[in-house]
Amino acid sequence: MATLSIVDARAIHKHFGALHVLKGVDLKVAERELVFVIGPSGSGKSTLLRCLNRLEEPSSGSIVVDGIDMLDPRTDINHARQRIGMVFQSFNLYPHMTALGNVTLALRKVAGKSRAEADRLGHAALERVGLADRAEHTPGQLSGGQQQRVAIARSIALEPRVMLFDEPTSALDPELVGSVLEVMRSLRESGMTMIVVSHEMGFARNAADRVVFMDDGLIVEQGAPAEIFEHPAHDRTRAFIGQIQRH
């Protein structure tokens, strides 16, 4: 399959006090690949995602993203994080700023763009998520789906090499999910490398290159969506997929 991996995480362990949340996870992601991570709650999938940009500090292991050793203390983590976009379940938009303000903050403060340049890039990013006309709205004036799309724009404006999605549609009303998935699909078509933690199995089926099933801090199995969904090799995978689909 892939040639060069853009994300290369090896033997990741994470302890929260006495809790052993990640028990040695390896994950390689190729450029332009869309990897879908599924698993029961508490399986460690969100923690894994948050370790990749070091929002959580792994207890041990190594993480290289786009050639940068993320765990090297000499690495400028703020610079590195610009290349790794992250979208959260609860959007986490800044409520005191407009949509454009949300998108341009890091452009100005981290990427060092002038306000005019940042505004231009910000408008372009909002355009890409279909919200060009909402630039001056504050998060409180936007629907959940629109907020999440602004959050996606906030990440893509920085032109990241990888995008991490942490249950991006779980907090949305069902009728708003489609618009967010639509944006994710168009991102995918533009060639963005994406790692998605989500329960949107339909989206996984027709958009993912690979599905990774995690349980109890470990990757149980992984493979093409059809393979995992139709012919899971492990009982645990089968049980989980059965539950989700009955749902």
């Binding site: 929002l55 790794i84 992250m86 986490n92 990440s155």
Partner: peptide
């Protein structure tokens, strides 16, 4: 989440 969103876009602790 506000801290996390901001830090994930590369802003430092102080910023």
């Amino acid at each position: 989440g506000q801290w996390e969103a901001s830090r994930s876009t590369g802003l430092s602790f102080g910023q």
